[in-house]
Amino acid sequence: MRNIVSPLLLGSLMLSGCMTTAATVSSAPTLDLTADSETVPVGTVNRDAADDPAIWRNAADPANSLIIGTDKRAGLYVYGLDGSKKSFLPEGELNNVDLREVMIGGEKTVLVGASIRNDRANAQVGLYKLDTETAELSLLGKYPAGPGEAYGFCFGQDSGGETFAYMIEKSGFVREITLSFDGGTPAATIGREHKLATQPEGCVVDDRTGRLYVGEENAGIWLFDLNADNFVPQRFANINGSELVADVEGLALAPEGANGGYLVASSQGDNAYVLYDLITGTYVNRFRLVDGVIDGTSETDGIEVILGDFGPAYPEGLMVMQDGANEGGTQNFKLVSWSKIKAAVAP
């Protein structure tokens, strides 16, 4: 990813001190919020199955936006904002999912990508087309993503519209894959890589600034400057048993203005969600979802935030998070209005 102007000072993001052993209960004050809606459960019962969501916002008809969620034992679901199942694509073992809008064969396409784990020795990226009218996914192709077990996954786009996929391999490799769509057929080329010391998973790219954020589950959050000549990360946040409790899982962005907004992280170890300021890298606040009309969340893996109008229930944006211990036993995804979150954590 190139040619993105990035005025943030990386030095302001460097945190001092050493990583400490994570506690199971955070000592930091934590706000209690409740979910606004939830999806129907995934089809795989009595197992750790639901994992990661992505959100497509329908700008022309916000209330008919769609949520894509992985059942990491079986395939990809598409849900409506009311939580109903719209479709399911059986693809076997998928872990994380993301989407971007691209041009394929002269047609604007909602491109969905996922990390495919069917072959534990050889990672693959699955690319799919989302039909926004029928809410169905169709396979475009499966592409090699290097040796090892596919785990985390996210897309990024530079200012020229070039699209990249980032494969987070379970043993620690972070790989950049360049995608092209010449002639209407996707192609994927593996490029730069870097190995973290221990197991990573969650990742997200800020397309505005050319920054890739990766969660190393028992260490913290790393930042890769994708405009730099090297592919070496700098530490963004430590797991310290207070603000951020291991495992750090899903990552999401809530962008504001030219460069600002929040990085949101799943603090799985104490069933909470943590917000960091994207400009300064400083901790802002944290919250958890507790039982209300809808049950709360626990052991959250993947999360996603998309800002904008999603209709009356979500006027400023939507956050979706996986629930690892859904009431009733089969995992699902919870939906929360971003306006509720923002009002609570940054009044």
Rank of each mutant, 00 (worst) to 15 (best):
G261F: 04
A150C: 08
L13N: 09
R288L: 06
N238D: 12
G269C: 07
Y213V: 01
G11D: 11
I239E: 01
E162G: 08
G156Q: 00
S242K: 13
L196F: 08
T178L: 13
I116G: 10
Y166D: 06
G83H: 02
M103A: 13
V110I: 13
K342D: 15
G250S: 04
T134G: 04
G184Q: 03
A150H: 04
Y166A: 01
N227P: 03
G261S: 13
I67V: 14
I55K: 02
G311N: 03
D32F: 03
T132W: 05
D182Y: 02
G106I: 05
M1I: 15
G126W: 07
F287R: 13
I177F: 07
N259K: 14
D98V: 04
L226F: 00
Y262I: 00
D82N: 09
D51G: 06
P186D: 11
S159W: 09
F231A: 04
D119R: 06
E91A: 14
A343W: 09
A325E: 14
D323N: 12
D158C: 11
D295F: 13
Q322C: 01
Q322Y: 05
D229W: 03
A114W: 00
P315S: 06
N3Q: 14
E304M: 11
D32M: 06
K170Q: 14
V25P: 09
V125W: 00
D131W: 15
G126L: 00
F224D: 01
L89F: 09
F287H: 05
T185V: 15
V284K: 08
A63R: 11
G156D: 10
I294R: 08
I306D: 13
S267K: 01
I190G: 12
G184N: 11
A344C: 05
G156H: 08
